[in-house]
């Protein structure tokens, strides 16, 4: 097979731009979903009345529907009821809506893994509420939460491949365009895979390393 290296080189800037865009959207989406997840998990952990039901409904709704439909609904549907957003905003909101519930579950798993005995011991040696959270609950909860949080980050980064569907010039869209215009199918797909590898492999490796680092905080098991 003849690989058109010239074409690959000439389309590099396009892919670079698209990769940065993908990364930017993913970062915003992940940050937003971390915040949403943290808030939701605190609501669930402390069983704050009305909010708890709302959060539960949100989690079920977001976990059991595909991102593509969420995006279409946000982008094409909401504009009909007078809420028009730019495609980038839409993508970030979509990612945050989807990721928030996953992050919430990850945080909640961590919080609930801190055993009652830990909290009682903390109280008995006279820790204040803040000290309890700072020195007892958070370190243990985090070490349990890190692996699922990391998996969620990778999951969200991969999910950004869908945003091309709402007219964002991301990696998928660029690939599709290049295939459509120049018919350099193999080269375009090759670049696509390489781009995703470059985005995902370092994250994957870093998370494996981080997972090992935080294991020290696990206690008792």
């Amino acid at each position: 097979m003849n690989i058109n290296w010239g074409f690959i080189v000439s389309s590099l800037p396009l892919y670079e731009k698209a990769a940065w865009l993908t990364l930017k959207l993913a970062l915003w989406g992940i940050s937003a979903s971390l915040i949403i997840g943290l808030v939701c998990s605190v609501v669930l952990y402390y069983r704050i009345k009305v909010l708890e039901r709302l959060v539960r409904a949100y989690i079920e709704l977001s976990r059991n529907t595909p991102l593509l439909i969420q995006l279409f609904f946000l982008y094409y549907g909401f504009t009909k009821i007078g809420i028009t957003m730019s495609e980038n905003t839409c993508a970030i909101i979509g990612l945050a809506f989807l990721g928030g519930s996953y992050m919430a579950e990850a945080f909640r798993g961590g919080l609930e893994s801190v055993s009652k005995a830990q909290i009682e011991s903390g109280l008995s040696i006279g820790l204040s509420n803040m000290q309890m959270i700072r020195y007892v609950i958070l370190p243990q909860a985090f070490s349990v939460s890190i692996p699922p949080l990391g998996a969620n980050c990778i999951f969200l980064l991969k999910e950004t491949s869908i945003v091309g569907a709402i007219a964002i010039p991301d990696l998928m869209q660029v690939t599709q365009d290049l295939i459509g215009i120049y018919y350099q199918t193999f080269e375009a797909l090759f670049m696509l895979v390489v781009a995703y590898m470059i985005l995902l492999l370092p994250v994957s490796v870093a998370l494996t390393w981080l997972e090992r680092k935080v294991r020290y905080a696990e206690f008792g098991n």
């Binding site: 991969k158 999910e159 491949s161 869908i162 998928m172 690939t175 599709q176 295939i179 199918t185 193999f186 375009a188 797909l189 696509l192 895979v193 995703y196 590898m197 995902l200 492999l201 994957s204």
Partner: peptide, 14 residues
């Protein structure tokens, strides 16, 4: 490591 959509593109187009 590779998104499913990318896989579908690889097979469908590539």
């Amino acid at each position: 490591i590779i998104p499913i959509l990318v896989w579908m593109f690889i097979v469908y187009f590539g």
